[in-house]
Design a protein around this nucleic acid. Structure first.
Lengths: 135, 135
DNA sequence: CTGTATCCTTAGGGATACTG
DNA sequence: CAGTATCCCTAAGGATACAG
């Protein structure tokens, strides 16, 4: 996004303009919570993201410096997607979104055990998620 | 949003489908960080939200149970918008979005003093924001 | 001035065909 | 199967006129 296109210099606005869409944080969720790394793994999520939407979101997340795309060593046909430090810094946001959704969605199917853990020891929980996702 | 329209039962997905747009959290930010309560105050923000967009977002946030709309006591022409407990629970998300944006936006104009305070004592910071916004 | 309704435009999502 | 390109459609955003 060009500097001049921004609605404002507010930090929250910056965040929303980069990850405030319906799909980006679901992809990051898959990487952080489920360790997904490849195109096919992202496609297989419950939300059934479309192939074209996935490709676009991945390339925009790469452009935003949130993830990197590198050829897979084990399978030459595939690319692997990995979170950058900037992407790993999204962990707290995901934790909060999980807590808020689990607390207020009447039909939630969230893993409440995980939520409770997050609430009980937020810092440690985040550190562990980050460490696991940083592989 | 009808139950059957949901992409999935994931708690994160629930959150994104309710507040994952470009404007909702900016309105909530104005209420929490700046104590804004009225239509005109929201209109005056840096991002220059349009009148029709503001009206739609306010009514959807009301429908989602995030804020309430009540006639102002002091000025009979106005309505007042107040956060519900569900809306107040968005405070941690806003704090995280602020931190992430401030950390990674090269052109940020965020109040870094505030950010540092938030990092140093997250719990206390959130409690104070909540208390102020709950008026 | 507060707030809504109308209309138009556009970005983002979705289906699908396609290449390697 | 991995990933891209194309096309279409809808929902969100934006300008503006309008009513109280």
């Amino acid at each position: 996004m060009k500097r001049t296109d921004r609605k404002s210099d507010c930090a929250i606005n910056y965040s929303l303009e980069h990850i405030g869409d319906q799909w980006s944080l679901l992809i990051v969720r898959d990487m952080i919570y489920f360790g997904k790394r490849t195109y096919g793994e992202f496609l297989a999520s419950d939300e059934r993201i479309g192939t074209s939407v996935l490709a676009r979101r991945l390339s925009e997340l790469e452009r935003s410096g949130i993830l990197t795309k590198t050829p897979s060593q084990t399978d030459k046909r595939k690319d692997e997607y990995h979170l950058t430090p900037k992407g790993l810094d999204l962990v707290p946001i995901l934790v909060d979104l999980t807590e808020w959704g689990a607390a207020h969605d009447p039909d939630t199917g969230a893993d409440l055990h995980t939520i409770v853990k997050a609430k009980a020891n937020r810092t440690g929980f985040i550190r562990r998620l980050r460490a696991a996702a940083a592989v």
